Computed example of a mutant assay.
Amino acid sequence: MPNLFPVAGESSGTPAGSTDGTAAGQVKFGRSWRFDYELGDFVTTPTGKIAECSDAEAWLEWCKKTIRTERYTYLAYSRKYGQEYDELIPRNLSRRAVESEIVRMTTEALKTDPRTDRVGPFSFEWDGERCFFQCEATNVRGQKSRMDGSVVTS
């Protein structure tokens, strides 16, 4: 029977230092449900079941949800999950500083997942006090995807 509390370096089936729990440091992508963010509801199949996605699509769903979820708000998520864009409102930062903070917060939020390799480049567009941004996220398999977000600064 395997040890329930293995010590690093002990023969536990995973290499010492491996954080993703898979052999040889390969990251498992898994599967997820599809969500329509414009409608605010899960995507359903013609038979009425919730549509699923796997591998890179599941990772992309995780990324989209992460940049739309406020950190520390929901007890169901760990303290590492989500972003902190609302903290920008009371800080009265310049537009350049807000953009820098969006880059930092978004990168930090997305890099908590071992499937994410890189985040960036970013592009910004301002409409009054609302900053719209786009960024590119790359997973460990080299697959890239663009994501959109927005932040209100006052």
Rank of each mutant, 00 (worst) to 15 (best):
F5E: 14
T112E: 12
V43T: 07
W59I: 12
R118G: 03
V151G: 13
C53F: 07
V103K: 13
G25S: 09
E52D: 01
A23M: 14
C63Q: 04
T116F: 00
V43A: 02
S94W: 02
V27D: 01
S11M: 02
T106S: 12
N92F: 04
V152Y: 08
A137K: 08
F29R: 05
E70R: 09
G48P: 14
C63T: 10
S78R: 11
F124R: 03
A23G: 15
R130V: 12
G17F: 01
P114R: 05
R31K: 10
E84H: 10
R71M: 08
A16R: 07
V27A: 01
G40E: 10
V140G: 02
G9S: 09
D86K: 15
A58K: 03
G13D: 05
F124M: 03
R68D: 09
V119Q: 03
G9L: 09
C135L: 13
G40C: 09
I50R: 15
D20C: 15
Y77G: 00
T69E: 06
G21M: 01
S12V: 07
T44A: 04
S145Y: 13
T112G: 02
V119K: 00
V27Y: 01
E38C: 02
T44L: 14
T112R: 05
F122D: 05
S123K: 13
V43S: 04
E101T: 08
K28H: 12
V140I: 12
K111Q: 13
A58H: 06
A58E: 01
F133R: 03
Y37N: 02
R91V: 04
P6V: 10
S123F: 07
G17Y: 02
E52K: 03
R141N: 15
P2Q: 07
S12G: 15
W33P: 02
D41F: 02
C53Q: 11
R130T: 15
E136M: 11
N139C: 06
G120P: 10
C63R: 06
L93G: 09
E101R: 15
G9E: 11
Q134P: 00
D117L: 07
A8F: 09
T69H: 06
N92I: 01
K65Q: 07
D148V: 02
S11C: 10
A24I: 00
E108N: 12
A51Y: 13
S150I: 00
S145R: 15
E84F: 12
Y81D: 05
S150K: 04
S154H: 14
E129Y: 10
T22W: 09
D20S: 11
A8C: 06
G82C: 03
Y74V: 04
Y77S: 01
D55P: 00
S150V: 00
T106I: 01
T73C: 06
Y81V: 02
T73I: 12
E84M: 15
Y85W: 08
M1C: 03
D148E: 12
D36W: 07
R68S: 12
F5M: 15
R71G: 03
E70H: 07
F133A: 01
K111H: 06
Q143S: 08
A16F: 05
S78F: 04
Y77T: 01
G149A: 02
Q83C: 09
D86E: 14
T138F: 05
R146N: 14
S18H: 08
S78C: 06
D127K: 14
E38Y: 08
A56P: 00
G128K: 00
T44Y: 09
F42N: 09
Y77E: 00
E84I: 13
